[in-house]
Design a protein around this nucleic acid. Structure first.
Lengths: 206, 206, 206, 206
DNA sequence: TATGAATGAGTTTTCATTCAT
DNA sequence: GATGAATGAAAACTCATTCAT
């Protein structure tokens, strides 16, 4: 099965309704926001009863945390795989990372939107955990940029800030991407890679 | 008085508690999000009673709309003023627009955050109005980019998309800016201007 | 108006439904216990809506605390008044205290039952406050007993424990008293006074 | 094994988890009250699953009934044994009955507390059965008192009411007894016996 | 303009209980 | 006997909003 529904982040876990519930939560949070979505919404989308939700998840906020954790895991896995297959030079590593990121957005647009907008409603350990995972993702980009700045590939005077700028620009894509839009998936990746390289002030040898 | 509290978007309107209420709403929506904030929150922050809110505003969603409208008006005014004072060439117009935008974020960070995150919860005419205002702001940037592409200042192959990328990168600044951060207000503007010009592929005459 | 409904602990406070709510809570807690009574029960008995309860009381447990506080205040006031009018010797002071206590039970049987059975469900400051008030009431009896033991009126070898035994025996009356029972109000007081004096081992000069 | 945990009312019945469940229920009801304790609480304390409870007991209220029945059986057995070994005169019979009662409280304090506070939540046949058992226990004391009054050992003018007063004073002990308190088990029994005899107005030949 | 009281629908969460395995 | 999943009702409490004053 190649074509996933964009909101299907979690595949069947073999544990009853779990996948359905997590995907339903993603959908609901994506549509109404964390506070705007009710547990009833989630249950309805998951095709189960409100109270049964609590056999799988102890609270609404833990539900959000779980969904975000899975989204981040998937993104991290994709980034890792892409970089494992990439060459050694900073420019192509950056390009591969951007491509993987864009593909993640295309496949899991809602997850990206929710990740961006709703983390702030986590608290305590859930928030700390997510922030740590997110920082790890950011470090991946910072490392690439640092490498490129060291070897002269990138001329930006603000390496870390620029890495973050690249990331926020990327994640903003989830806010406007439409599957039926002007650009194909590949073209979108190409565009974003070009933005990234330009922003990092790579020579325009392209 | 020169130093405004960052959340104070609306100055005294001469109409009782109106300014206090609008600023309180901005604060509350900024802290908890539209759905996470309650009218009670707003009333408490404004130092008035819950029911008195409804003497100024007919509903919670109209309160959000009003707040967002004022934020956008202020941003538009600042952009307009900055461009009126700017030169004729695309690069310096872009630079001035970025500077004004950054200064708006620094002065009204919460307003920018709320603008970015909570518009989606408006509906009907309120939403349409806001989107139109926002499109007008975007057009300002698109026009500058178009001018620069026409006269060869900018080499980007995606003028409109790049203009939007510049804008989303800018508004993302509101998500992480801290008054006590590493960069001064001026340095921040400088950095963002450089990102913008790089992203638009202006010659690296810098 | 002389004949009060037994559950009417709180007279009109001039503040909307407050008295009705407190009396309704007393009734509900008396009938079903704290955990067995729902806020809906209370609202129904008070003749108002569930949500309106929360304009008067911030939580169910604070409602219990408030009810118990008022009950204890009334009991303390009655004890104080009775002792102010009593003679100086321990036996007649004890007798008057018992009479006042019994009259309180007769007038506010439900309040006494709830006081006895439901304090344990209070927590934190509410519980501490109530326990302190209750200790003060107990001290009144301990003082009388101490006086009587000192001047030879009471022969009990366990003054403090015996004072407590008297009190628990008294409050247990609330568990079985019926207005239409065998004993009149006065006879009941007489009986309990006799028990108390006997238990304290006063000479059987009776 | 001589030293029982105070809450262990039921010894292994040879039927799977039954004893654990009944003891867990006793604990839970003792801690939170009948309505404040949930079947989940009970299951957790018993170390089994929620649904497995229903293999042993058909409903929550029957669980309470069962626990109370066992507590009362144990108390009745102890009273019976104590009286079988006692002499013939009312004073020593009363003394032995009080001793047995106090020992029951010391061994099964929680059971006594639950018995006292939660019977009221039983309904129908369960309640009727318990009340009958309790009346039988009360009759034991009433008989002793009647005997004593008949032969001049006790001078109380209210034989039946006084018997009940003795019983409620005794059961109230469960409300404050602490294993590490001032009085030993034997001293406590001695004290309560003295209260009882005094209350019944036995001559102070002690 | 301002308030406290009022309301009905809604919130998240827990309840006792049942059922398929 | 034992479990995890399921359910509908109910819990306490909050919501945006209205109204009388």
């Amino acid at each position: 099965m190649n074509a996933r529904s964009p909101a299907t982040l979690v595949a069947d876990t073999g544990r009853g309704n779990e996948a359905a519930i997590l995907n339903a939560a993603l959908d609901a949070f994506g549509t109404h926001g964390f506070h705007g979505a009710s547990m009833r919404d989630v249950a309805k989308r998951a095709g189960t009863s409100l109270s049964n939700l609590y056999n799988y998840v102890p609270s609404k906020s833990r539900l959000l945390a779980e969904v975000l954790r899975r989204a981040n895991d998937e993104l991290a896995a994709r980034l890792g795989a892409a970089l494992a297959d990439a060459g050694d030079d900073a420019a192509s590593r950056l390009r591969e990372a951007v491509r993987a990121y864009v593909r993640f957005i295309v496949d899991h647009q809602v997850a990206m939107v929710v990740s961006t907008n709703e983390v702030r409603y986590l608290t305590g350990a859930d928030r700390a955990g997510l922030v740590a995972e997110r920082d790890a993702t950011q470090a991946v980009f910072e490392d690439i940029v640092a490498q490129g700045v060291a070897d002269g590939t990138f001329a930006t005077p603000y390496p870390d800030d620029a890495a973050r700028a690249v990331l926020t620009a990327l994640s903003a894509v989830a806010g406007w991407y439409r599957a039926d839009g002007r650009l194909s998936r590949g073209q979108l990746a190409e565009q974003q890679a070009r933005y990234a390289l330009a922003l990092l002030e790579a020579p325009l040898a392209r």
